[in-house]
Design a protein around this nucleic acid. Structure first.
Length: 124
DNA sequence: ATTCTGACAGCAA
DNA sequence: TTTGCTGCCAGAA
């Protein structure tokens, strides 16, 4: 199949032939500043709606990527920061989110509905 | 090849 | 509404 040139730049639409982890990283990179999405939403966007857990597993290794993967912008369906223990300090994820103007209360994104960004419907 | 695991999500209660 | 149980699938503890 045709390659889209020699682009190795991050933040671009996931390609079909990329392995799952890489596609997860790319979608995660598309999440706008100050917005969040869920593991399941990413999985659905990648055409594998039952692989939400694997998305989390991929993000667990995202720090190995050569470019910045805003993994803190991915929370669970309820808007809870279930992955916070995978950041250096258990409060790091919340701090990163607050730095983007989000409000976190009791490990949940306040106004999650409004801040939620679904790649399946909002990516253009 | 097989088995186990997990940053989940759907559904029943 | 929230909690607990179960199925899911891509990697590797």
């Amino acid at each position: 199949m045709k390659k889209t040139g020699s682009l190795k730049i991050s933040r671009q639409r996931p390609e079909e032939n990329e392995d799952f982890f890489n596609r997860v990283y790319r979608v995660t990179g598309m999440i706008p500043f100050g917005r969040v999405t869920s593991y399941g939403a990413i999985a659905r966007y990648l055409g594998s709606g039952q692989s939400a857990r694997t998305v989390g597993w991929a993000l667990n290794a995202s720090h190995c990527q050569p470019w910045f993967v805003p993994a803190h912008r991915v929370v669970n369906r309820k808007g809870q920061l279930t992955g916070k223990h995978h950041f250096g300090n258990s409060s790091t994820m919340q701090q990163l989110l607050e730095n983007e103007g989000l409000i976190v209360d009791d490990d949940r994104i306040v106004n999650f509905r409004e801040k939620f960004w679904d790649p399946s419907t909002e990516f253009k």
